[in-house]
Design a protein around this nucleic acid. Structure first.
Length: 293
DNA sequence: CACTTGACCTGTCCGC
DNA sequence: TGCGGACAGGTCAAGT
């Protein structure tokens, strides 16, 4: 489930692999949800266009093209972008830690073929992800980009910006608030649980019972957690791989996520519990994170 | 408007 | 062994 650190890892991989490459062909395997109703625009503005840069906003990837169009890509839960170089077609093989097998496979929804013969595969087991073309000049009008909250890792994102956004949702739980993309960008289930554990806040605490000091501390924690995760190439729970087919290693550093029944690193005698908050599986240390109703 | 729930999907895991 | 059902979660639409 790609969240900010996973999408950023993919962005960096794409920036390295596909910038300055020219698109020769777009192969659509199942029209559903990859470029819905955009066949004509794909032909007109992708074929022959060169990749200028790859940007990210929240969990959305933005592949900027020389045609003045941008490919917006949302991977949702199981989307993957996997790059296969020409050398691999010539028998160069994949890195030993790569999970890549034969591509395209049954999950491949779209393949971009570049003029040098390299390929970018958009795989998506559960078909929730999508790709859309948008004129680059019209990106500011995209509703998601208008409403999405500040980037946690942007140095200009300070508590003064985040506290009022969280306080707008005073009657819900702190976990629901930070998962809300209009409050802050890029937090999903993994980093919500990890950052709340680090900040010693119970996820079911109602926002009105969380102090400003706790929010300030939480913002610092989510920044630390996401920075470490990007350094580790993100989190691979089940499905996630980067552009080169490599798994992320962050879960080796996780304190609560998928660690139910294992000891808390701050309280070795206490076991991590799994509860349900905001409709999501939620992992807590019952001693670090005491519920203030 | 704020908040919660259901829908979208399909592979995996559990109990019978 | 097979089958049914719960579960996984990002986001949006629809409901309260």
């Amino acid at each position: 489930m790609p969240e900010l650190p996973e999408v950023e890892t993919i962005r960096r991989g794409l920036q390295k692999r596909i910038v300055h490459k020219r698109i020769a062909q777009c192969i659509n395997y199942a029209s559903k949800k990859s470029f819905p109703n955009q066949a004509e625009q794909v032909t007109a503005f992708m074929i022959g266009a060169e990749v200028v840069a790859v940007h990210r906003r929240a969990k959305l990837l933005l592949v900027e093209l020389s045609s003045l169009y941008t490919v917006m890509i949302h991977l949702k839960m199981t989307g993957q972008l996997v790059y296969v170089d020409v050398a691999e077609h010539w028998g160069g093989g994949h890195p030993s830690d790569s999970l890549i097998h034969e591509l395209p496979d049954t999950t491949t929804r779209e393949t971009l073929v570049f003029t040098d013969g390299s390929q970018l595969f958009f795989n998506d087991l559960r078909k929730f992800g999508w790709m859309k073309l948008c004129p680059t000049a019209e990106l500011p009008a995209v509703s998601f980009l208008q409403t999405v909250g500040p980037e946690p890792l942007d140095p200009t994102t300070v508590p003064g910006m985040v506290i009022p956004r969280i306080r707008r949702h005073n009657k819900t739980t702190i976990k629901a608030a930070i998962l809300n993309q209009s409050v802050i960008a890029g937090v999903g289930n993994i980093y919500a649980d990890e950052s709340l554990w680090m900040a010693r806040i119970h996820p079911a605490t109602r926002v009105e019972n969380v102090t400003d000091e706790q929010i300030i501390n939480w913002l610092s924690c989510v920044k630390q957690v996401m920075k470490l995760s990007i350094e580790q190439g993100g989190s691979t729970d089940k499905n996630y791989i980067d552009v080169d087919g490599k798994r992320g290693n962050y879960l080796a550093f996780a304190h609560v996520f998928r660690r139910e029944g294992l000891p808390c690193s701050r309280h070795p005698g206490v076991l991590i519990e799994k509860i349900r908050v905001a409709g999501r599986g939620t992992h807590i240390c019952p001693v670090c994170q005491v519920l203030v109703p």
